[in-house]
């Protein structure tokens, strides 16, 4: 009996430790009707980084965000400008966003806020950021609703 408990503990410890120590954990999935691509945080950090300094309803004053541009990420999977994207967050909340936004503006998948990684508690690990300070038309509440935090997947509708 005692041995069995010990065995269970060892096995579960192995499985629990696996995502941390072994394979890098996928935090973002981008899928089209035919393909699907997963990215770990390291994958995302190794992409060309874009910085955006902007204000929005959820931060105090002008804030520096950094991450790959959404355009770049979409291009990796061959998603075109006319697509409609469904962006889903960790809590299963989802919003539909036209892909043209990414081609018209420097929309980024921010992974750094003021130089630091974002935890889930602070809308991380990925927060979709629109450069609202650079384009006055983006301050419309329509775009505020597209600032999805805790982004976990992008799929073509």
């Amino acid at each position: 009996m005692k041995f069995r408990n010990y065995l269970i503990a060892v096995i579960s410890a192995f499985f629990l430790a696996m995502p941390v120590s072994g394979f890098a954990q996928a935090i973002l999935t981008v899928s089209t009707h035919s393909t699907s691509q997963s990215y770990s945080l390291d994958d995302i950090l190794s992409m060309p980084q874009t910085t955006v300094t902007t204000n929005n309803h959820y931060v105090e004053g002008s804030t520096l965000f950094q991450g790959p541009s959404l355009r770049y990420v979409l291009e990796q999977t061959g998603i075109k400008e006319d697509a409609m994207l469904r962006m889903t967050a960790l809590n299963d909340f989802s919003v539909d966003v036209p892909a043209s936004d990414a081609f018209k503006y420097d929309v980024i998948l921010a992974v750094h806020q003021n130089g630091e990684k974002m935890s889930v508690r602070d809308k991380g690990p990925i927060w979709v950021i629109y450069p609202m300070d650079d384009h006055p038309e983006l301050s419309d509440s329509l775009y505020s609703d597209r600032l999805i935090w805790q982004l976990s997947s992008i799929s073509v509708k």
Binding site: V59, L90, V120, Q150
Partner: peptide
């Protein structure tokens, strides 16, 4: 842990920015 963090993030949203 994830649920807890998400609920925490909701508290943070009410406590920062414009809200």
């Amino acid at each position: 842990g994830l649920r807890f963090d998400i609920a925490w993030s909701r508290i943070n949203i009410i406590k920062t920015g414009k809200l």
